[in-house]
């Protein structure tokens, strides 16, 4: 094939390109890729290292025994402290306080769970706020005062001794 010189040259260039790509590719694949599947296995360790923010009720107990006890005895025993207060990770680090824990005294916080809704399970304690306030003898004008619920209910034990 004396007239195919150009073809061989083109083929050689192509070959160099393909081999070059295969070689370069080897260096660009992450080391842990493909160990347990088509992904970078080290990513699992990175996900594990994400900081935990919610510690659960027990993590609050060490410093806040009284409210822990109160809550444990009342109707809110199954409500984790962090549901209303926010995650412990924002509040304490290595058992030392790093920031003030927010307290939300608004009736809107109570409404998240106890506003009367047709979709809520029938057995769950829920009230139509306006109607409930009227029944309790509060004037029901256009605006409901923010802290109105706290007047009668202690949030840690809403139906217990502290309640009205």
């Amino acid at each position: 094939m004396e007239h195919s010189k150009h073809i061989w040259r083109a083929a050689l260039i192509l070959l160099f390109g393909v081999v070059g790509f295969i070689v370069v590719r080897q260096f660009l694949i992450p080391k842990s890729f493909g160990i347990a599947g088509h992904y970078r296995f080290d990513a699992l360790a990175e996900f594990m290292a994400q900081p935990v923010k919610h510690g659960g009720r027990e993590s609050c107990r060490k410093c806040h025994e009284p409210p822990y006890e109160t809550t444990s005895k009342g109707k809110h025993a199954r409500v984790s402290c962090e549901v209303c207060h926010g995650p412990v990770g924002d509040h304490a680090s290595k058992e030392a306080k790093i920031a003030v824990m927010p307290k939300n005294p608004s009736y809107k916080l109570c409404a998240y769970c106890h506003q009367k809704l047709a979709a809520r399970p029938k057995g769950f304690k829920q009230v139509s706020f306006r109607k409930h306030l009227e029944e309790q003898g509060f004037a029901s004008d256009s605006k409901i005062p923010e802290k109105i619920c706290l007047k009668c209910h202690e949030p840690h034990d809403p139906t217990g001794a502290a309640g009205n």
């Binding site: 360790a45 935990v52 510690g55 659960g56 027990e58 993590s59 990770g89 680090s93």
Partner: peptide, 15 residues
Amino acid sequence: LACGEELGALAQMAG
């Protein structure tokens, strides 16, 4: 377990 100092402390607090 990939648990740093801080996380370890928190995890301990959480029992």
